[in-house]
Design a protein around this nucleic acid. Structure first.
Ligand SMILES: [Mn+2]
Ligand SMILES: [Mn+2]
Ligand SMILES: [Mn+2]
Ligand SMILES: [Mn+2]
Lengths: 222, 222
DNA sequence: ACCGTTTTTTAGGCAAGCCTAAAAAACAAA
DNA sequence: TTTGTTTTTTAGGCTTGCCTAAAAAACGGT
């Protein structure tokens, strides 16, 4: 129905829209898509023409209901494929994104639903990101950044805000994966670094402010 | 590395080359690719430029070693994805081709090997077609058409020569799948139709000459 | 060898999706 | 409000992969 390129733009617009409301700027989109501003203007005209987005010159772009639908379905496929690649094929969580970028564009009405069933209807992808359901509904979770967490309260790691291979591999080396239980022992005022206890390994370690800003956690349940 | 379109042409050339040797003609390729002769000429120039094929005007095209390698790898991916779709996701054998046409183009060095392992290194796809191994070697099987089979000798269905949904669904309705055991009871001279016994269902039925020309069988082992 | 038919190539054009350079609009600051 | 800077759009061009119409080559029968 729509080209891969169109779908990718829609996904990028959705992502930027969710970050902050109001219209998305040409420049922000160009940065997100790693392309130039004129290329973006080109595409916005096409998306607007096809009623997938409303675009006003020098103002910005917003998705229409149909645009949201297409973008959400794409995110759903991307994240389900990421689950498949890690859970079924045994890929590491820092290796799956590029493959999912391609797999997400495979068009077939039944494929995504069958894949979802095969995977056991997962609600979050390997990076802790929510997977919209078949109706486009997003699972909610009251997550927060580790950097915004109080000293002393036990938390579970449920996601990452930085999806780079470098960061994910750092976490692997450090022994922090999704589901890891942390408690902040001390917050250093000077550089906002954290001394934390990692329950799984019964071990204390120091996390930089940068790391603390890239980890999503939620309160550990008893 | 190569575009989807280039890969599809290489696969088509390989297929036609395997059917009969000598160069592949522009017209045959156009028919196979469901496109026009000028489009084919265009692409042959590009493939030749990239050393994937040797093309001589008004003569025809042949794959280079690299062209064979790329085409074989594509067939490998196509057929492994077809196995995945039927074995793991439960799709019918008449539904998987279009999806595999898209999945086969997903580029990643490790993906196909992991998929192969996940599937248990299948040697044939859901239609009985051979799956080249990681080195590009094709499994051999001494199959023949049912139409060329002698009366009285028990055979097993191991493949189809017609991949159309119409034929595959006809086989489903008739109860003939891969692995079905047949014995020809009688060959009618008038229209070359066959009366056969289908062991699995302990049932006799009549198959047209057209059907007999679309079924591959091999001798049933004791 | 010639001639009509078929096949193939050439010529020219189009849309998608990208680019750079230049113009225009918007913004910000004095 | 004027001016300098940043952002965005326009203008023009490129490649890929298609197309149709016309020209050229190859083929087949006499
Ligand atoms: Mn991803
Ligand atoms: Mn992810
Ligand atoms: Mn197929
Ligand atoms: Mn097949």
């Amino acid at each position: 129905m729509y080209t891969s390129s169109e779908e990718n733009y829609l996904k990028a617009i959705l992502k930027l829209s969710q970050k902050e409301d109001g219209p998305v700027s040409t420049g922000a989109l160009a940065a997100e898509m790693q392309t130039t501003a004129p290329s973006v203007t080109d595409m916005l005209r096409r998306l607007s023409e096809k009623q997938l987005a409303t675009y006003e010159k020098y103002y910005g772009v917003q998705l229409t209901a149909e645009g949201v639908r297409v973008a959400t379905a794409l995110v759903r496929r991307h994240r389900l494929w990421e689950v498949f690649l890690t859970q079924k094929l045994g890929f590491a969580w820092d290796a799956v994104h590029d493959m999912a970028e391609q797999l997400e564009h495979v068009q077939h009405p039944e494929l995504v639903e069958r894949l979802d069933a095969f995977l056991g209807y997962p609600r979050f992808d390997p990076h802790g990101d929510p997977i919209p359901d078949a109706k486009g509904q997003w699972p909610q979770r009251q997550r927060q950044l580790l950097s915004a967490t109080a000293v002393g309260s036990p938390v579970v790691v449920v996601g990452v805000d930085d999806h780079s291979a470098a960061f994910l591999q750092y976490l692997d080396r450090t022994g922090i994966g999704l589901g890891a239980h942390l408690t902040i022992l001390e917050r250093i005022e000077y550089d906002h670094s954290l001394n934390v206890r990692l329950l799984e390994q019964n071990r204390d370690l120091t996390l930089s402010d940068k790391v603390a800003h890239s980890l999503f956690v939620e309160p550990a349940r008893e």
